[in-house]
Simulated assay, not measured.
Amino acid sequence: MDINRYQLAAIKTLQEPAPGTDPAVVPLLGLVGEVGSLATAYKKRLRDGPGLVSGKQLVREELGDVLWYVAALAHRFGLDLEDVAAANLVKISDRWRTTPTADRIIFDADFPESERLPRQATLTFTLQQREGDGRTVSVLTHDGTPCGDPLTDASHIDDDYRFHDIFHLAHAAVLGWSPVSRFLLGRKRKSDLKTDEAEDGGRAIAIEEGISALVFSYAARHSYFENVRHIDHEFIKTITSMTAHLEVSILRSADWEQAIMTGYDAWRKLRTQGGGTIHLDLDEQTLTVEP
């Protein structure tokens, strides 16, 4: 049955609300109640076993009641159930399906080779004792040339945030986007003033650094994703809202989750090894860490 035809048929049995009552109250409370009934049906299925025919029929009946209240509630809010369903599929695709390889856009494809992120590169993280104060710093090099400044944890806690440039390299590998990596590797798109300022400039760099610190705080509360493969949707929405005005905004929430997990898989290895050699591959969207 067509879902909009179902909605039209369902609302014919919808009763008018009592005077002075919000029309959405009854279907909303009814939906809550039917979800409880569905949970009870599932409880009976667990108790009696999935082979019980009456149990399956009960679940079918309760799902039907849930669907009726969803149709009624959509009607009360002036929504078409088909539109609700279509929008939900878009949302779910954004959250759980990464951008297909064929649809990926290379943000710097039209720029000179010297201004493109390298499709493949080898970089090295090493730990050194800083002269003067003896603090341990992480030094990132590319082909023997230092990238940026030596980094400490910049914290009262020894948490190895000194390796956090690996997160920016993961953004480059998986998303094809990283203003910080462009700065570190000398790949800012200076041939186009607008792009250099808006996409590769100080504000974009600050946003990416902010994302790195924000995710690290979240990761610290989740064992640095060692046994966690998914991130709260609301948290990722915060990241996508921070980058809504940047070129990376065309990518999906699932792409961000993949980039974050790729970065933390590499970071944990660097932390264990006290550094390492990184093989960056934008074509394969991978970071490989060696001792």
Rank of each mutant, 00 (worst) to 15 (best):
A198G: 09
D80E: 14
D94S: 11
G148H: 02
R76H: 03
L81M: 05
R162C: 04
A86P: 07
L175Y: 01
F111N: 01
L67F: 11
S155F: 10
G202H: 12
V180Q: 01
T141Y: 02
Y161T: 04
L140E: 00
R189Q: 07
A170M: 01
I105C: 11
E131Q: 11
C147T: 01
G186L: 06
H164F: 06
D108S: 08
F77R: 03
D196V: 13
H142A: 05
S93A: 14
C147I: 01
I106K: 04
E82G: 15
S181G: 05
A86W: 14
F107A: 10
K194M: 10
L193K: 15
L151Y: 07
I105M: 09
A109G: 05
F77A: 05
D110G: 03
D143G: 09
G64T: 06
H156L: 15
R182M: 12
L81C: 09
S114T: 12
D65G: 08
T98M: 09
F183C: 11
Q129D: 10
A86Y: 14
L81H: 05
G134T: 04
S181M: 09
L67R: 13
D103Y: 13
I157A: 03
D149I: 10
P179H: 00
A71D: 14
P146A: 07
P118F: 03
P179K: 00
R189M: 10
P112D: 00
H142R: 07
R104S: 08
T99I: 04
D149H: 10
P112L: 03
S155R: 06
D165Q: 12
L151W: 07
H75N: 12
V84L: 06
G64E: 02
R130F: 01
A204N: 05
G78H: 03
I105L: 12
L140P: 00
G186H: 08
L63S: 06
L185T: 01
Q120F: 13
